Deep mutational scan, measured.
Amino acid sequence: NQASVVANQLIPISTALTLVMMRSEVVTPVGIPAEDIPRLVSMTVNRAVPLGTTLMPDMVKGYA
């Protein structure tokens, strides 16, 4: 089972991601792979991401 990136807090729309905002967790459905966390830092989300939500590729500008 692959770990995915999960929001560690509410991430408001257009917020630049930082390490403290994300954690890795094995979830269903599978989202962005946890090993991509370093790549996600400073990318922005294009929607509000509630606490505990799995980050999907279409939620992060420039990721997909």
Score class of each variant (00 low, 15 high):
Asn1Glu: 15
Asn1Trp: 08
Asn1Val: 15
Asn1Gln: 15
Gln2Ile: 13
Gln2Met: 14
Ser4Trp: 02
Ser4Pro: 03
Val5Thr: 08
Val5Ser: 01
Val5Glu: 01
Val6Ile: 12
Val6Lys: 02
Val6Cys: 05
Val6Phe: 00
Asn8Thr: 12
Gln9Ala: 13
Leu10Pro: 13
Leu10Cys: 14
Leu10Gln: 14
Ile11Tyr: 00
Ile11Thr: 00
Pro12Asp: 10
Pro12Phe: 04
Ser14Trp: 14
Leu17His: 00
Thr18Trp: 03
Leu19Gly: 12
Val20Tyr: 15
Val20Leu: 11
Val20Thr: 14
Met21Asn: 12
Met21Lys: 00
Met22Glu: 02
Met22Lys: 00
Arg23Pro: 03
Arg23Phe: 04
Arg23Gln: 05
Ser24Lys: 08
Ser24Val: 12
Glu25Arg: 06
Pro29Tyr: 04
Pro29Met: 04
Gly31Asn: 01
Gly31Asp: 01
Ile32Lys: 00
Ile32Pro: 00
Ile32Trp: 02
Pro33Thr: 08
Pro33Glu: 05
Pro33Phe: 12
Pro33Ala: 13
Ala34His: 07
Ala34Cys: 06
Glu35Ile: 10
Ile37Gln: 04
Ile37Pro: 00
Ile37Thr: 07
Ile37His: 02
Pro38Arg: 08
Arg39Ser: 12
Arg39Phe: 12
Leu40Cys: 03
Leu40Thr: 01
Leu40Arg: 03
Leu40Asn: 00
Leu40Gln: 00
Val41Ile: 15
Ser42Asn: 11
Met43Asp: 02
Met43Asn: 05
Thr44Ile: 12
Val45Trp: 00
Pro50Ser: 09
Pro50Cys: 08
Pro50Leu: 10
Pro50Glu: 14
Gly52Tyr: 04
Gly52Phe: 04
Gly52His: 14
Thr53Phe: 11
Thr54Glu: 02
Thr54Leu: 04
Thr54Asp: 02
Thr54Gly: 01
Met56Phe: 14
Met56His: 06
Met56Gln: 13
Pro57Ala: 15
Pro57Cys: 07
Pro57Asn: 04
Asp58Ala: 09
Met59Leu: 04
Lys61Gly: 10
Lys61Thr: 14
Lys61Cys: 15
Gly62Glu: 09
Gly62Pro: 05
Tyr63Ile: 04
Tyr63Glu: 03
Ala64Tyr: 05
